[in-house]
């Protein structure tokens, strides 16, 4: 019973409700960093990391600070502050501990704060796994799973897109469509393909 709930969340986040292609969350980095496969991988890794941990932290903050104090209406403002300071903190730790990793992820970290996918997944966790102020069973684990696989879905779409865009550079695109415009048309076709997963039911 519980296992099915987890599997449903995983399939839904990676394929059926892919954050980029069906929910339109995180479009800016999707268009910005999808020109090269190598940078797409780094960005994806950074997003998965930040998303999973912010999902966990915001759940704990909501459950043990906002709910007991009855100030759940401050959710948005609290979450964005938690995410922003967490990203800043991670950046400082990586810079101190591993300059190599910093060189790979460094420039992407500040971008993640304003990535709506991160705030989106934390808000979605609360909407999905809380009934009123009451946490559903396995709520914490479900939230972390949802955050992690939302990041995986994001990375998958980013990788596919970067592969296509690398090939696209060799093609003769009409002048008006060069750049962002053709990227949107490609994304539209990809999203059409991903709609094929919609029939999945458990």
């Amino acid at each position: 019973m519980e296992l099915t709930a987890f599997i449903t969340v995983i399939i839904s986040m990676v394929f059926v409700n892919n954050f980029i292609l069906s929910k339109f969350l995180g479009l800016c980095p999707f268009l910005g960093v999808s020109k090269k496969t190598s940078s797409a991988v780094s960005m994806g890794a950074a997003v998965i990391f930040v998303m999973t941990l912010s999902g966990a932290i915001t759940w704990l903050v909501y459950r043990f600070i906002l709910v007991p104090l009855d100030i759940t209406y401050l959710r948005t403002i609290t979450f964005i502050l938690v995410i922003a300071s967490f990203v800043q903190f991670v950046e400082m730790v990586i810079l101190k501990k591993s300059p190599v990793l910093y060189r790979a992820l460094g420039i992407y970290l500040p971008l993640i704060t304003t990535n709506c996918a991160v705030l989106g997944v934390t808000v979605l966790n609360i909407d999905n796994f809380f009934k009123g102020a009451q946490a559903v069973p396995y709520s914490f684990l479900l939230s972390v799973t949802q955050s992690f696989f939302a990041g995986v879905g994001f990375t998958l779409a980013l990788l596919l897109m970067s592969g296509i865009r690398e090939k696209l550079q060799l093609n003769d695109t009409p002048k008006a469509f060069q750049g962002v415009a053709i990227a949107f048309v490609i994304a539209s076709l990809m999203s059409l393909a991903f709609m094929g997963f919609q029939g999945f039911r458990f």
Binding site: V185, S188, S191, M195
Partner: peptide
């Protein structure tokens, strides 16, 4: 009305 239409 669905996602692909928006992007297109």
């Amino acid at each position: 009305v669905l996602a692909p239409g928006a992007l297109l």
